[in-house]
Write a protein that binds this DNA or RNA. Structure first.
Lengths: 204, 204
DNA sequence: GACATAACAGGTCAATCATCCTGTAATCAA
DNA sequence: TTGATTACAGGATGATTGACCTGTTATGTC
């Protein structure tokens, strides 16, 4: 028997990262456990030790890399941007650039898993919904921050944030179906008008 | 051996309808062939005769009930409506009412399958994308019809139609994750402003 | 009425998959 | 040191699944 690694945190991270990549590309049901094991380069015993069931692994992937993906590509860029409009623009442009560069659209990790797992398991659905919530809330907070506290637009910042997340999620889905960035570009074209009109109204 | 039905069109339709319901509720990978067979109430032989592979059945479901679902819930209502805005409103309101009535969100048949199958099989992806195309085109045509032929807004009717489809698809996905109609309501709240602003601009 | 073919009926089968099991080595607490 | 527990290694297993296969009966054609 070959020497074992004995690095629980490392092994666990390898497995979760491999599962994240496969779940995102092939889906949850489309990914057998042995594919995760092989990509992670661990033994069946190690995999079973850290994740007794596939659902445990799914939960860990959602709480880890999926949440981080939304935080890294959406929540942090929007928080750092000069305005909500500029933040949303940067995310759309980065996503479009990535599609043009790679030539393929794997889809949004959160959206892919939400579509597949929401009606299958309540525990997983709850975690996925929590990420959607944080995503919407981050955009809504940025929208409110750039307006005077008593502006009329504040009360629908939540609805607008919802619209932005829905637009992006839906556009990514269409981009995936067409394997092109066109739906994302078309969506941003119109979304830009909406956001800039609102910014000018807030400044006036 | 029991008497066979000998009704090829009927048998085929039973199978396709059963598969449509299961694919929509449980997903493509989440639906075994024997579940389709049992729900349709046909024999394994009949199923294999009409659909030698699962992919054949998937293709038939997409070309049939999935395409009809978009045509029946979106394309026809929008075409019949007094305006694009009124048409889109009626679809959102009907969808929200249905969610409130049933208490659950199974998701959009097209969106569910597009999320799961787009990166898995090009033939299926192509068919799904064709339905998205017809959906966008139907809304774009309605948007253009209510404006003077030389209006400035015409050139981005396609982009706005894209936005509407993306919003709806994304909102349905969030509704599925939250198992509530709230994301759809929030989306329509904002979309309504956009569409009505455009209508008044076109009328003036 | 002979023949070919389509439309089943019902069961089989090989492959895949998630889970579990047995054995072993590293770690750690006492 | 010793005993317990954690962290693996490598394979086994039972269930599931998509596809297929053999027989049988309608249906249409000449």
């Amino acid at each position: 028997m070959s020497q074992r690694t004995n690095d629980p945190e490392g092994t666990r991270r390898q497995v979760v990262n491999a599962a994240f990549e496969l779940f995102t590309r092939k889906g949850y049901e489309g990914t057998p456990m042995h594919a995760v094991r092989d990509l992670a380069g661990v033994s069946s015993g190690a995999l079973a030790h850290h994740f007794p069931t596939k659902r445990d692994l799914g939960l860990a992937v959602i709480r880890g890399p999926v949440a981080e993906a939304i935080a890294g590509t959406w929540i942090e860029p929007v928080a750092r941007a000069s305005s909500a409009s500029a933040g949303v623009r940067s995310v759309f442009e980065a996503t479009i650039a990535d599609i043009v560069r790679t030539g393929t659209v794997a889809g949004c990790p959160l959206g892919n898993l939400a579509a597949e797992l929401s009606t299958r398991n309540d525990a997983l659905r709850f975690e996925l919904n929590a990420i959607f919530d944080r995503w919407r809330e981050a955009i809504a907070a940025k929208l409110q921050a750039q307006q005077p506290p008593d502006a009329a637009g504040n009360k629908d910042a939540g609805a607008l944030a919802n619209l932005i997340v829905a637009c992006f999620s839906g556009a990514i889905l269409m981009a995936k179906a067409s394997q092109s960035a066109v739906p994302l570009q078309a969506c941003w074209t119109h979304l830009q008008n909406i956001l800039e009109a609102r910014t000018q109204k807030g400044d006036g």
